[in-house]
Computed example of a mutant assay.
Amino acid sequence: MEAFIEKFRKKYRIPATDLQLLIDCMQEIHFKKKEIIVGEGEKNTNLYLIKQGIWRGHYLKDGVDTTIWFASAGEAAFSVWGYADNSASPISIEVCCDSLAYCISGQDLNTLYSSSIELANLGRKLMEQQLLSTENWLISSGSPRAQERYLTLIRDTPELLKYVPQKHIASYLWITPQSLSRIRAKIKC
């Protein structure tokens, strides 16, 4: 079984048969680095399952670009506003490196959810994971130890270092790029 499928199954606790049913209903799409999947103010109800690559969710306020999440192979990515409320997104979703993902429209996904209690539970699990990720991000942003947050981030998603600019990692950690440089230098010692 492919690594991204195994990672997805583990994170969302979904049986292989249900995941295969979902993937069979999805379209495989290639995305180029810096491509915008969802722009601020746009509506997108699609669910994406990342096969390879890294994506980020971010918003721009007062000229400051703040990253609020990263998603990599084996993770779902979607606009919570479009997915849950069919409304415009206040964040953008951007591809950080050339990527391959599976995509299903919100309408097709809801039809699929209606056909299977297991897949309907997947929809619930997606939202639960999104909520947990958001709360962890908020809690860690108040942590006085940016170095600990950085070490956790690179432990969980080491490929970020290869494909994501330092300024985006720093904004996710709620620190300046200069502070991140100091942390990285200290770790290398």
Rank of each mutant, 00 (worst) to 15 (best):
I91D: 02
E42A: 15
V64P: 00
E42W: 11
L112Y: 10
L132M: 10
A101V: 11
E40T: 02
K51R: 15
N121Q: 09
W55T: 12
V95C: 14
L22H: 01
Q129V: 10
S99I: 03
P90S: 12
L119E: 06
L109K: 06
T45M: 11
D62M: 11
I37C: 04
A76P: 03
L49Y: 07
K125I: 00
K43M: 15
A76F: 05
S79N: 02
D24P: 00
L131K: 14
D85Q: 13
Q107A: 07
L122K: 04
L126I: 11
S79T: 05
A73C: 04
G106V: 03
T67L: 07
G39I: 00
I93E: 02
E42H: 06
L132Y: 13
K125S: 07
E128Q: 13
Y113P: 03
S79F: 02
G63K: 12
T67W: 10
A120D: 06
S99T: 09
G39Q: 10
A88W: 02
S99H: 08
L122V: 08
K43H: 12
L109P: 02
H58E: 01
A77N: 11
T111C: 15
I23V: 15
N46H: 11
E28Q: 13
G53C: 07
L126V: 02
I104K: 08
C103K: 15
S79D: 04
L131I: 14
L119P: 03
L49R: 01
F70V: 00
F31D: 05
E94S: 10
R56Q: 09
K51F: 06
A76G: 05
I29S: 11
K43T: 15
G39C: 09
K34Y: 08
G63W: 09
K125G: 06
C25E: 13
C25D: 08
R56S: 07
E40W: 01
N110L: 13
I117V: 10
F78R: 07
W81L: 02
E40R: 00
I54N: 04
L119V: 14
G74Q: 04
I54M: 10
K33G: 04
W81E: 07
L22T: 00
I29H: 09
